[in-house]
Design a protein around this nucleic acid. Structure first.
Lengths: 164, 164
DNA sequence: ATAGATGCAAAGCGTTTGCAGGCCT
DNA sequence: AGGCCTGCAAACGCTTTGCATCTAT
């Protein structure tokens, strides 16, 4: 896993250079944090705090600018789980469609499942003459652990989760 | 259509009264705007501007409070298209799952298609032991009109749309 | 010298909240 | 009186931007 990280950084360095952009220490630190927390769906603020450990002098604005840059370069993806903060994750290589998210309304955990919409998209494209280039899919519900927790607590039907 | 609107308002009045809440002129004006623009996916600011015509003295905070109230009562639904503003639309009666949205990356138009995820959800529920209570699905792409516009302009492949 | 990149602080934007009244039994 | 409701303005939280400075060609 160690060399894969270094490899990926080299690839990205080339991508940046192709656009006359630099892989500065701040950008590298930000990328390392993102690479080391692939499944974490970090917010900008969370990335910032983690990067501070590696590069204490970095500013929040730089993190925001770096994240925006990486989104534009399609290296990472900006996610929106409706909780008022943008979250970021690495894009799969050359994969236009990301996976789907299962969002637990109780504990807030977000897990991922593979993309299941291929056939559906094709039928939508023909029926609505709408050319689909991407989709955003989230399923809201209760994860296994929270279902069991609720059972043992003997609580009745879980109330509707608040928006924030 | 006229009487259906009045009917719906009476229903909602009862719902409010059941919670010791009142259907004030401001709330009624807000509801009328929402009822008269069912497919429009209005933002709070847009609702506010439309309500101002009917009730010029209303404050933005009241609109926000009314919208929040209606969301809590499950009369309307808060939508998030990732453009940085919350949008609102009426809930279908007793229908837990809303429809899906086709979002055009060129002109920004949002159209609706019926819910197509029933089977998919059941298979996810068993395979991941995740109890699904709702989902959010948006397809991003190019609508029929924008596809044709692009063709006649002779422009090459449309560039990736900016996030905002 | 030139162009990109940075940190800081200030501004921006949508949304929420505190508060002093207002309305309606 | 009491509760709900309102408008206004201020506050809020996340994000963006202006600017002077720095770095590496």
């Amino acid at each position: 896993m160690e060399e894969r990280l270094a490899d990926r950084l080299q690839q990205i360095k080339k991508l940046l250079h192709a656009e006359q952009l630099k892989l500065t220490p701040q950008r590298e630190a930000t990328l390392r944090v993102l690479l080391e927390n692939q499944e974490a769906h970090l917010s900008a603020e969370e990335v910032f705090m983690l990067v501070k450990h590696k590069a204490p002098d970095i500013g929040l604005a730089t993190v925001y600018r770096t994240l925006e840059l990486l989104v534009d370069l399609r290296i990472i993806e900006k996610l929106n789980f409706g909780d008022g903060v943008a979250r970021y994750e690495f894009r799969e290589r050359d994969q236009p469609h990301h996976h789907h998210h299962l969002i637990c309304l109780d504990c807030g955990k977000v897990s991922e499942i593979e993309d299941l919409l291929g056939d559906l998209e094709r039928s939508i494209e023909t029926r609505h003459r709408f050319r689909i280039v991407d989709h955003r899919v989230s399923f809201l519900g209760y994860c296994r652990e929270c279902q069991e927790k609720t059972k043992t607590e003997g609580t009745a039907l879980p109330s509707v989760a608040k928006d924030r």
